[in-house]
Amino acid sequence: MEAFLVSTGIVALAEIGDKTQLLALLLAARFRKPVPIVAGILVATLLNHAAAGAVGAWVLTLIGPTGLRWGLGLSFLAMAIWMLIPDKLDDGDTRLQERFGVFGATLIAFFLAEMGDKTQIATVALAARYQALGPVVAGTTIGMLLANVPAVWLGEKAANALPVRWVHATAALLFAGLGIAALMGVGTR
């Protein structure tokens, strides 16, 4: 349960102001069809984060528990710093052929935008840390939906109402706390 809750919270906070949240706003404004957009976000996130979680689980088998502890600690500290750097939406993320439809365009755009993104990297680290692929992927997916579904349904007003700097600072503190805990060996078996 801890893996699910931590994954949900961290990704929901990390996603505020992220380029994929900006993409959700852009898709909502462009297509004005929230159901296929939300469905595309869900499927893209499940696919992307399942692959990222599998990589995280695989990393554990390569480097062992001690290497994992140091790698995770440093990764979480790096994520804390990265959270303080604002994201920008790449122009290429929104230029998909109309032939894919709203669902297809959202699925492709979100999947590609999430490659190498903060939340994907966090999913790799969380899956390695908790060694619980299902709960981590479920948590990171729910976290993505918690941040992006309101952006789709309520549009720019909802996104602008949140104090993005405060949310990013909170997420940075959470990542830093996880990094310090990992380096200290908290929760190791």
Score class of each variant (00 low, 15 high):
residue 7 S to F: 01
residue 9 G to D: 08
residue 10 I to V: 15
residue 11 V to W: 01
residue 12 A to K: 08
residue 15 E to M: 03
residue 16 I to K: 00
residue 17 G to V: 05
residue 20 T to I: 02
residue 26 L to N: 15
residue 27 L to N: 11
residue 27 L to F: 15
residue 33 K to Q: 07
residue 42 L to K: 02
residue 43 V to N: 04
residue 45 T to R: 04
residue 47 L to W: 02
residue 48 N to W: 04
residue 48 N to C: 09
residue 51 A to K: 00
residue 55 V to A: 05
residue 58 W to E: 03
residue 59 V to I: 09
residue 61 T to D: 12
residue 62 L to K: 11
residue 63 I to C: 10
residue 65 P to H: 10
residue 65 P to W: 15
residue 65 P to C: 14
residue 67 G to C: 11
residue 68 L to S: 06
residue 71 G to R: 13
residue 72 L to Q: 09
residue 75 S to H: 08
residue 79 M to S: 07
residue 81 I to G: 09
residue 82 W to P: 05
residue 83 M to T: 03
residue 85 I to K: 05
residue 85 I to W: 09
residue 86 P to V: 14
residue 87 D to Q: 10
residue 87 D to L: 14
residue 88 K to Q: 09
residue 94 T to G: 15
residue 97 Q to N: 13
residue 98 E to S: 10
residue 100 F to R: 11
residue 101 G to D: 06
residue 105 A to W: 14
residue 106 T to S: 09
residue 106 T to F: 06
residue 110 F to I: 12
residue 112 L to I: 08
residue 114 E to N: 12
residue 115 M to W: 06
residue 123 T to A: 00
residue 130 Y to T: 02
residue 142 I to P: 08
residue 143 G to A: 01
residue 149 V to R: 01
residue 149 V to Q: 05
residue 150 P to H: 00
residue 150 P to F: 01
residue 151 A to M: 00
residue 158 A to M: 09
residue 158 A to E: 01
residue 158 A to Y: 08
residue 161 A to E: 06
residue 162 L to H: 03
residue 165 R to H: 15
residue 172 A to C: 07
residue 180 I to M: 13
residue 181 A to E: 01
residue 184 M to I: 14
residue 188 T to M: 10
residue 189 R to M: 11
